[in-house]
Amino acid sequence: MKELIKEFAKGIIKENPTFVLALGLCPTLAVSVSVSNAIGMGIAATFVLLGSSLIISLVRDLIPDKIRIPCYIVIIATFVTITELCMKAYSPALNRSLGIYVPLIVVNCIVLGRAEAFACKNNLTRSFLDGLGMGVGFTLALILISSIREFLGSGQILGHTLVKGFEPVFVFGMPSGALLVIGLLLGLFNFIKDKKA
């Protein structure tokens, strides 16, 4: 049991996809403008990660080694398309603000990375927990980055103004601001890790 919890928890800090593995940075840069986008993207990616991890772990013995990558991609793309259609139908506003980055989850390295590195070698429960942990870790990282960016870039969090008279630092709403924030946070994570070691 303890081992299973570990499988889930590692994605959150020890092997955080964004800050430690540095995977999936492209959507992270793009959608972390606002917290609501970050949550939407996080949930969508977590769903895809869960679904693909489950299915790939389930059929891992049926897929020959030589054609595993195309098979994984088809499975992942299916889940992404399901997510996109559902989002379009039930939350068109979120779909519009995430734009092209929803279909691009297909090529998010976290999803294929976990399929290749974990799900194809481990059983159903462990793959499920791994996918969930990675998804939650990705979502938390997105929320952390986007709350810094949304607050500095527009003076708001989730549309609520926090400090009156604050002059927004527009650069944090731009791609350059995303690079700045992620770079500094990565530096901070590494600094803490070095201190511990």
Partner: peptide
């Protein structure tokens, strides 16, 4: 450039 992008 930071100021230019932030408070044009």
């Amino acid at each position: 450039v930071f100021l230019m992008a932030s408070w044009p």
